[in-house]
């Protein structure tokens, strides 16, 4: 019996001193294995009385248990130690750059276009595109700009032949949509796309640019509806704090016509260089669809009325992002494009 306790004492000491999992495993094999001191001590059992044997058995079981437990406890400690050691050796320099994946960009004009599309789609508009190579009839005549109209002076046009041209605005898409509707409303559509004018390119002019037309036609559409719609647009594109101001203007295809200013987002209307110290920035043209246009496009102007607006996408992007040279949009310069990598 004393022998067992001695073995235990010795074992526990050795386990405590043990410094590696390998050593610990050796101790386990030695003390709990078939050839260990425990087994030798057990051999004396056969000479014992029944009672003695029972109590010896009890003690030896207890000793085995204690040694096993001690080994288990030590193992946990050693494993933890070994893991910590490993962690220490695995240290890397986390300041080195990440193995980043390339991130491309959507062109800012596409970003603005998609933002507009999503805003208006959410309000039940569909998106119509028309041909960029357009007929004079659609581009001008149906927009109430007959051949001798003085306002044609406003439009410097790339003609292809007498009757064909590169569209000067997205407004002719209105006519395509209206004629396809066969005189029956409602119509709710936006028409984004490329447009062309015979302008020499400089910082503020581009012979190619993009517009987004909007058209709503039904039996009771009012100018107040136009105003509310444009207010939503202004807040979405330039922030909740924006206000709009309507000024009378003239477009042959709308009557009444309005020019729309938004309160300057750069100075909150206080006046700065961006808004030429007026607090307002001219942003788009709009109006109630001219009854003549409705009639020419197959709608009864006694029954139907509606509004239309035309937004210059470059202008919106230039104001929104502070771009001051329109040519940047068309250069393909990566130093320009890379600035639009984030979601907006």
């Amino acid at each position: 019996m004393d022998e067992l306790l001695k073995i235990k004492e010795e074992a526990l000491l050795k386990i405590q001193d043990c410094s590696s999992l390998k050593e610990l495993n050796d101790l386990r094999v030695f003390y709990l294995g078939k050839k260990g001191p425990m087994q030798s001590a057990m051999k004396s059992m056969k000479d014992m009385s029944k009672e003695e044997r029972a109590s010896f058995g009890q003690v030896s079981n207890k000793v085995k248990q204690d040694i096993t437990q001690a080994i288990e406890d030590k193992k946990k400690i050693l494993e933890e130690k070994e893991m910590l050691e490993k962690i220490k050796n695995e240290r890397i320099d986390i300041s080195l750059p990440g193995s980043h994946l390339p991130l491309g960009t959507i062109h800012p004009l596409s970003m603005i276009r998609e933002e507009l599309e999503d805003l208006f789609i959410g309000m039940g508009y569909s998106v119509a595109e028309g041909p960029e190579v357009e007929s004079d009839h659609f581009n001008f005549e149906l927009m109430n700009l007959p051949k001798d109209h003085p306002a044609r002076d406003m439009q410097d046009t790339f003609y292809i032949d007498e009757n064909t041209l590169l569209r000067t605005h997205t407004s002719p898409v209105q006519a395509h949509v209206m004629l396809a509707a066969n005189g029956k409303g409602p119509i709710k559509v936006i028409c984004p796309g490329k447009t062309y004018r015979r302008d020499d390119d400089d910082a503020t002019h581009s012979h190619q640019f993009s517009q987004c037309e909007g058209l709503v036609i039904d039996k009771n559409i009012t100018m107040a509806d136009l105003k509310g719609t444009l207010e939503l647009f202004a807040k979405k594109m330039f922030g909740e704090k924006r206000e709009i101001r309507l000024r009378p203007s003239y477009f042959p295809f709308t009557e009444p016509s309005v020019e729309v200013d938004i309160s300057c987002h750069n100075c909150n209307g206080k006046g700065c260089a961006m808004c030429k110290h007026t607090g307002w920035i001219e942003i788009l043209g709009a109006g109630m669809v001219n009854p003549k246009v409705l009639e020419m496009c197959g709608f009864d102007s006694q029954v139907y009325q509606g509004f239309a607006f035309g937004i210059g996408l470059e202008r919106v992007a230039m104001l929104k992002y502070g771009i001051d040279n329109i040519r940047d949009f068309y250069s393909g310069d990566l130093r320009f494009l890379n600035q639009f990598v984030r979601k907006d």
Partner: peptide, 11 residues
């Protein structure tokens, strides 16, 4: 300033 009150259209 109002918004068009009209038949629902699919956007």
């Amino acid at each position: 300033s109002t918004l068009p009150l009209m038949e629902m259209t699919k956007g």
